[in-house]
Design a protein around this nucleic acid. Structure first.
Lengths: 215, 215
DNA sequence: GCCCGAAGTTAACCGCATGAACATTCCAGG
DNA sequence: CCTGGAATGTTCATGCGGTTAACTTCGGGC
C-alpha cells in the first residue's frame, strides 16, 4: 500500500498524486480553466466525487497545480541561468544572468502557455471581488520573482556597463516579463510571428537590463 | 419603438443594449468570468434564451463587453493625457504625456479591476489551445496600445532628457504596464499597500521612460 | 384584416461543482 | 483468525450555467 503500489482494485492507492498529474496535464493542454475536477477524475478512472477525499474542491486542486507550475517555471529559469557561460567581467556576468532568467521566463510561457497561465491564476470561489477583511496566508513566495529580483539586485550593486543607465527594480522587471508573456501567450500579441516575438522580447530585455531604476 | 422607448410588454425594445449594460456591470463586479448569460438576462428581466436573439452566445456577449472595456480604458488614458499641463520643453512635454498615459493605464486597472481584466480576456470556446490554421480577423486595434506607442515614438524622436537612455519600445512599454496592472489587480502583488503600489508604479514608469530601446 | 418574421418564452439536454448517504477495504486490536 | 472503525470510493441528488428546439406574441407591411 505504499504510494506506488497501486493495483486496479477499489482503492486506488495514490489517487491524490494521480489527480494532480491529470490536473497538471489538463492545465498544460488548456490552461487553468481547463482544469476540471470531473475530467481529472475521469482520466484517472475514478468517480468525480472521489476527488473530494483528497482535495477541498476544484479550488484546491487548481492551487496545487499552480504550485507545481510555479516550481517548473522557476526550475526552467535556473537551468537556463546555469547554462549561461560565465564571463570575466562580473558586470557582464550579472547582466547575462538577468537576461538568461528573463529569456527563460518568457520562453517557458511561450512553450507552455497553459501551465504558465495556471501558474498565475487566481482560483475564484465564485463571486467576491472586493475582499473583506480576509487575509489569506500571504502566498509562500514565488521563486521566479525571487530569482529575478536577486539577479537584478546583484546587477544594480555592481553598476551597469552603460553609465547613467540602471537596471530595473524587481517589481518593474517582473511586470515587464509577466506582461510580455501574457500578451504573447494569451493577449493581443498572441499572433506575432516568431520574428516579431523575438523583437519584442529583445526590446523588453533591453528595457529591463539598462532601464532606469526609480530616481 | 425607438431604442429608448422600452415598455414592460412582451417585447423589450432594446434588449441588446440592456444586456450589454448588464454584462458590463457584471464584468465590473467580478471580471470576465462573472459575465454570465443567465445572470445578465435575469437582471434585465428576460428569459435566458432571449439573449440568443441578439448574441451568438456567451462568447459574443463577452467580446462585446471587452470592446466596451477597451474603449473605456483608452478614454481614461486620453482624458488623463489631456489634463496634463503642457511644458515649454517639448521633450519634457513628451515625457509627461507618456507617464500620464501609463499612470492612467495602471490607474484604470486598479480602479476597475473587473473591467480591466475583461478588456484583455480571451473568450475560449471550451478547449482549443494549439491554434489550427484559423486566423481570426486580426483584432481591430487596441487604442490603449496605440496611444502608448505613439507617445513613445514621439518621445524617441525627440531624444530623452538623460543622454544615453532611450524610451522603451511600444511593445516593451505595454508589457510593463500590462504586467504591472495584472500583478497588482489579480496577481501576487495584489495585496501591496497603496504605498507599495505607488513605488512599483514609479519604478515601472522610470523603466519605461528612460529605459533603453533595443540597440 | 392577415400573414410573416422578429423577439420572447418554456422545456429539455448536457456538463460541472458539490453534498449526503452508502459500500468496500485495510488494518489495528482483541 | 475475527471484527469494527477509519479511509477511501461509489451512487444519488441538487443547483447553476450554456445552448438547442419548438412554441407564442407582437408589430407592421401588404
Amino acid at each position: 500500500m505504499a504510494a506506488t503500489s497501486a493495483g486496479k482494485t477499489y482503492h486506488h492507492g495514490d489517487l491524490r498524486n494521480a489527480l494532480i498529474c491529470a490536473a497538471v496535464d489538463l492545465a498544460g493542454e488548456g490552461g487553468p480553466e481547463r482544469v476540471v475536477l470531473r475530467e481529472a477524475a475521469r482520466r484517472v478512472g475514478v468517480s468525480p466525487t472521489a476527488a473530494y477525499r483528497h482535495f477541498d474542491g476544484r479550488g484546491e486542486l487548481l492551487r496545487t497545480v499552480r504550485t507545481h507550475a510555479r516550481r517548473e517555471l522557476a526550475a526552467s529559469m535556473e537551468r537556463a541561468a546555469a547554462r549561461e557561460p560565465g564571463a570575466d567581467d562580473p558586470v557582464l556576468a550579472a547582466e547575462r544572468r538577468v537576461t538568461a532568467l528573463c529569456r527563460a521566463y518568457v520562453g517557458f510561457a511561450v512553450e507552455h502557455p497553459g501551465l504558465y497561465r495556471a501558474a498565475f491564476c487566481v482560483p475564484r470561489p465564485a463571486s467576491a471581488c472586493e475582499p473583506g477583511p480576509a487575509r489569506p496566508p500571504a502566498e509562500p513566495e514565488i521563486r521566479a520573482y525571487t530569482l529575478l529580483r536577486e539577479a537584478l539586485e546583484a546587477l544594480t550593486a555592481l553598476g551597469t556597463a552603460r553609465p547613467g543607465a540602471r537596471p530595473a527594480t524587481g517589481a518593474a522587471a517582473w511586470s515587464a516579463v509577466h506582461g510580455l508573456s501574457l500578451l504573447l501567450v494569451d493577449g493581443p500579441l498572441r499572433r506575432l510571428s516568431a520574428q516579431g516575438r523575438r523583437v519584442a522580447v529583445e526590446a523588453t530585455l533591453a528595457m529591463v537590463v539598462s532601464g532606469a531604476g526609480s530616481d
